[in-house]
């Protein structure tokens, strides 16, 4: 077993194919960034809608976020990849094709918008009611209160949790290989087909992700601790 262990940790094959693997990783990164932007944008809409005065809007937003928080990302990914083109083709009356890349961004963005909407809502709620009352007492309009008093504070308060969500999103980008996006896991299995050395390749992939996620988490921890100490978030 010891020499098997040595083989697993023999990352030379990783190094040999580093260009291919890293460019695959570039796909993960870009999907992560685009999906993250999409998720954040939707999250602000839905999170604010959760606190709207209108019952229908509130419940609709609740339904949205509950649906996407409780549906597996892989199911959404496959659904978007297979079914969106059909729906859009029928709707737009022209042939519509969704590239795996676009399907991945859309599916992951929407999947995590549910989680982030909750984060946004919690952030908005965490602004003390008294601050809003003081603004009301001074005669400020609701719009001014939202943008000048509530938002600045809410964004700071939701940042730690939001960063954690982004880390989860990044981990989730690993599944895009399953709809043939040429990301790092896809490239790893390609290299495996070529080299027939699953031990170092898959171990290497695990360690690679491990390294990145742990580093990112540590940085986020330091940042948020610093913020908390300074009374920011």
């Amino acid at each position: 077993m010891l020499d098997r262990l040595k083989d697993s940790l023999d990352l030379s094959v990783f190094w040999e194919y580093r260009v291919i693997l890293l460019s695959g990783f570039g796909q993960n990164l870009s999907i992560f960034l685009l999906a993250g932007i999409l998720a954040t944008a939707i999250a602000f809409l839905i999170g604010a809608a959760r606190l709207n005065r209108n019952w229908f809007i509130r419940t609709g937003a609740l339904g949205y976020s509950e649906f996407f928080r409780n549906t597996p990302e892989y199911v959404l990914l496959v659904w978007v990849y297979y079914i969106m083109p059909i729906l859009l083709t029928n709707l737009l009356k022209t042939r519509f094709d969704l590239s795996p890349y676009a399907a991945a961004v859309l599916a992951l963005g929407v999947a995590y918008s549910g989680f982030m909407a909750e984060t946004v809502r919690a952030g908005l709620l965490s602004v003390p009611k008294g601050h809003v009352e003081a603004a009301l007492a001074l005669g400020m309009s609701r719009r001014a209160i939202l943008f000048r008093i509530v938002m600045p504070q809410a964004v700071r308060r939701m940042l730690p949790e939001a960063l954690n969500q982004y880390v989860s999103l990044f981990k989730a980008t690993s599944i895009v290989s399953l709809i043939a996006v040429e990301d790092i896991m896809y490239r790893v299995s390609m290299v495996n087909v070529d080299q027939m050395r699953p031990l170092p390749l898959y171990t290497g992939a695990a360690l690679f992700y491990c390294l990145i996620i742990i580093t990112a988490s540590q940085i986020i921890q330091r940042l948020t601790n610093g913020w908390r100490v300074r009374g920011w978030a």
Partner: peptide, 11 residues
């Protein structure tokens, strides 16, 4: 109005 909990905006 002056409130019991001051309600100054921290940011």
């Amino acid at each position: 109005m002056v409130f019991q909990s001051f309600n100054l905006w921290p940011h």
